[in-house]
Design a protein around this nucleic acid. Structure first.
Length: 181
DNA sequence: AGGAAGATCTACT
DNA sequence: GTAGATCTTCCTA
């Protein structure tokens, strides 16, 4: 229940957990981006509320999933009360269940496994049915485990957006191999 | 109904 | 570094 940019920073270092087909997959969040609502031309909420993006207006802490090209983007809803916004997971450092991730996304170079929003969705077996799942519920098929905040981190403009805001809304763990670029 | 654009990725130069 | 694949949503007619 805070601004997307605050949540995006504080998600760095937390553990993203995915339970699928009886297997547990884990990774440390190393790259995120913040998206606002009206006023943010890069946001999926920019053009107003419709069926597919309605999660961005609703309860913070739930997943928001949508596609770009052939891939699914994994987001968590984040905003102050009665606000609009979300945080995109752009990269994780895989820490558990690597073999199961490799099955879903075979790669030679491990660095390619989860170093991008579309890549991590494939590796973690993300599907549209996960829309609306609460990430604070440790019994959920996708949830997040708390960890000490990463105090020093890098920032940049968001990647791949055609109309960005003046602020730098991409956050990443300095020097981590799994950061997308 | 049709076409364009997009928070991407891969393959090839 | 650039081109092309590919799927959902949105805009216009």
């Amino acid at each position: 229940m805070r601004s997307p940019d605050v949540v995006a920073r504080e998600l760095l270092g937390k553990t993203l957990v995915r339970v699928v087909d009886g297997e547990r997959l884990e990774g440390i969040v190393v790259e995120t981006e913040a998206y606002y609502g009206k006023g943010d031309p890069a946001s999926r909420a920019y053009k107003g509320r419709s069926k597919y993006n309605t999660a961005m207006w609703e309860v913070p802490g739930r997943l928001f999933i949508y596609n770009v090209h052939k891939y699914l983007m994994l987001n968590v809803v984040a905003h102050v009360p009665s606000g609009v916004g979300g945080v995109l997971f752009r990269a994780i450092e895989p820490t558990f269940g690597l073999d199961a991730m490799m099955r879903r996304r075979p790669v030679i170079d491990m660095r390619e496994l989860t170093s991008g929003p579309g890549k991590l969705s494939l590796a973690l077996g993300v599907t549209r049915e996960l829309n609306g799942v609460h990430v604070t519920d440790t019994g959920a098929p996708v949830h997040i485990l708390d960890a000490p905040p990463v105090l020093v981190y890098g920032t940049s403009h968001r990647i791949g957006v055609t109309h960005d805001l003046p602020d730098e809304l991409r956050f990443y763990v300095n020097g981590n191999r799994f950061v997308s670029r």
